[in-house]
C-alpha cells in the first residue's frame, strides 16, 4: 500500500507544529512541540494560569478544562491533539461583565474552597456535568466530583456547592 499523502502540519519527526486553539472565545495561533501538554500550553504559552497542575498523571483533576464542552484532563492531552478545538478554562466561566457563573457563585455561597488550588478543576468539572444534568441527587453530586482531589475542605461543602449550583441554574431557567 502506498503511503497516503499527509499534510506537513500533520506529521513530523521533530520540530514545531502550527496549531490554532480557541480559548474562552479568543482564537490563538501557536507553534508547539509535539510533547507540549495542553496544561502547559495554557499556562506557559497563553499565560492562562487559572488551570492548575497538581499531579500530571490524571489523578487529581486540578487541570480539568472543557474541550468542545466535554470535561477532560489537560495534563493528559497534547496541545497538538487539541488543535482546532474550542477550550473553556476556569477564566472563561464568569460572564464578560465579571458576574460569577452559577457554579462559581455556589462555591462562594457554600464555602466550597479554602486554599483554592483544586477549585479550577472542580468548577470546570461541575459546570460540564450540570450542563448535561442540571438536577443531580446528592449521590450523583458525589459521583460528579469523585475524580477530583481537595486537600482542604473535606468535600462536604463542595457537595453542597454542586447542589446549590444546580438550584441556581434551574432558578435562572
Amino acid at each position: 500500500m502506498a503511503e497516503p499523502a499527509l499534510k506537513d502540519t500533520d506529521m513530523k519527526d521533530s520540530g514545531l507544529f502550527d496549531i490554532v486553539l480557541v480559548v474562552n472565545g479568543t482564537s490563538y495561533a501557536l507553534a508547539v512541540p509535539a510533547r507540549r501538554l495542553l496544561s502547559d500550553c495554557l499556562r506557559h504559552d497563553l499565560r492562562l494560569t487559572g488551570t492548575h497542575v497538581g499531579c500530571e498523571h490524571g489523578v487529581c483533576g486540578a487541570c480539568t478544562v472543557l474541550i468542545d464542552g466535554v470535561a477532560v484532563r489537560s495534563c493528559l492531552m497534547l496541545a497538538v491533539s487539541a488543535d482546532n478545538s474550542s477550550i473553556t478554562t476556569v477564566e472563561g466561566l464568569a460572564g464578560r461583565d465579571g458576574k460569577l457563573s452559577p457554579v462559581q457563585q455556589a462555591f462562594a455561597d457554600c464555602h466550597g474552597l479554602q486554599c483554592g488550588f483544586c477549585t479550577p478543576g472542580f468548577l470546570t468539572t461541575i459546570t460540564a456535568a450540570l450542563a448535561e444534568d442540571p438536577d443531580p441527587t446528592p449521590e450523583q453530586a458525589r459521583e460528579i466530583i469523585g475524580g477530583n482531589l481537595c486537600r482542604c475542605t473535606g468535600y462536604q461543602n463542595i457537595v453542597q456547592a454542586v447542589l446549590r449550583a444546580a438550584e441556581l441554574i434551574t432558578q435562572t431557567r
Partner: peptide, 12 residues
C-alpha cells in the same frame, strides 16, 4: 514531569 520528545502524526 513532562514527556520525552517524540515525533507525532495525526492521520485522517
Amino acid at each position: 514531569m513532562k514527556p520525552p520528545t517524540f515525533g507525532y502524526s495525526r492521520p485522517e
